[in-house]
């Protein structure tokens, strides 16, 4: 187990190094680092001085080592727009994004699981068929357009919910959160729903497929033969067995929810990391872009790592050390 963990850890670190090289090369080969790191207002003498100071006259490999060293110390340069350390600017916006992502995944699971369970148990009913057709639509509809339509219906025409912003926030652990206030919840509802629709459809289909796979198994028939109530059969035997893939997918999809929050945050003017990166790309605030990309890579690698570990712990059939454990 320890050996497997170490091996998996090493892989995660390797991926992070590989991605940092890609970001670095992207910066240096495709873009001109001088333009990126020096403000466009600087004159020639200033440019040369900064080039020497930043070590841009050094070989690329040494530059990369310096870049990595600074990055490990959390020093990714100052944002041109905010005039603060880039990492700090991003971390300030992280709670907003995390809050949105967690609630969206929560929605997806709370709605997707029961609906999927129903569609699996009563797969011939018209409601189940309707749900499955709806889930195809959930896959096909582009997220950003659903977001606009949600605003159109609920904010503009019905006027029930606000169209953007975080609303009132309350402080917890020194950070600002929207989910602690009623006004914050009103602001959270639409973006979280928007972000969760795709995942809801996914969890629903997954649960349904799982139920249909588990139901004909011998142990379900045996449980029924023992005279257990239907409720107990479902909650104990069916649910337990379909939870492994569902939990894995929820874990993996959490990362993709954070990625797709870029879209939702832009539509609903949600002041999180996603909106920040789009704004930064549009005004070419390069330090923020680099810091965001590196940070998101780290987040992703750790999410994948955590999912792998949890998966292994949950499912005794996954044998450690074998080729399959690296998935």
């Amino acid at each position: 187990m320890i050996l497997w963990l170490l091996k998996r850890l090493l892989q995660a670190v390797l991926v992070m190094v590989a991605m940092s090289i890609i970001v670095f090369v992207g910066l240096n080969v495709i873009g001109n680092p001088v333009d990126i790191l020096i403000s466009p207002d600087a004159d020639q003498a200033e440019r040369l001085r900064v080039i020497a100071e930043l070590g841009l006259d050094q070989p690329l490999v040494w530059q990369y080592v310096g870049f990595l060293k600074a990055a490990l110390h959390g020093d990714l340069g100052n944002s041109y727009v905010f005039n603060q350390p880039a990492l700090q600017v991003i971390l300030q916006r992280m709670p907003a994004t995390l809050e949105l992502a967690v609630i969206a995944v929560g929605f997806a699971a709370l709605v997707g699981l029961p609906l999927g369970l129903y569609a699996g148990l009563r797969s011939e009913s018209w409601l189940a068929k309707f749900l499955m057709a709806g889930s195809i639509l959930g896959f096909s509809l582009p997220t950003f357009w659903i977001g606009l339509m949600l605003i159109m219906v609920f904010a503009v025409q019905l006027g029930w919910l606000p169209s953007g912003g975080r609303g009132e926030t309350a402080s917890l652990f020194g950070l600002q959160w929207s989910f602690l206030t009623a006004d914050g919840w009103r602001h959270l509802l639409l973006p979280a729903l928007n972000l969760s629709l795709f995942k809801m459809a996914l969890i629903m289909r997954l649960t349904r497929a799982g139920v249909r796979e588990v139901l004909p198994q011998d142990y379900i028939r045996y449980a029924r033969a023992r005279g257990l109530t239907e409720r107990r059969v479902i909650s104990l035997h069916v649910l337990k067995n379909i939870m492994i893939p569902v939990v894995t997918v929820i874990g993996i999809e959490f990362g993709s929810v954070i990625a797709f929050s870029v879209v939702t945050e832009t539509i609903f003017a949600w002041p999180g990391m996603g909106k920040l990166i789009i704004d930064s790309i549009n005004v070419l605030d390069r330090p923020i872009i680099v810091a965001y990309l590196l940070l998101i890579v780290v987040v992703f690698v750790w999410i994948n790592f955590a999912v792998d570990v949890v998966y292994t712990l949950l499912d005794p059939r996954v044998r450690l050390g074998e080729k399959g454990s690296a998935r």
């Binding site: 991926v15 590989a18 970001v23 992207g26 910066l27 495709i30 873009g31 990362g255 993709s256 990625a259 797709f260 870029v262 879209v263 990166i277 790309i281 872009i289 990309l293 998101i296 890579v297 992703f300 994948n304």
Partner: peptide, 19 residues
């Protein structure tokens, strides 16, 4: 494997941020 472990929108975002 490496590329598919990142969501498509993020990969596209990364490329367009550079290009």
């Amino acid at each position: 494997d490496l590329q598919l472990s990142f969501p498509s929108i993020l990969v596209a975002l990364m490329i367009l941020a550079f290009l």
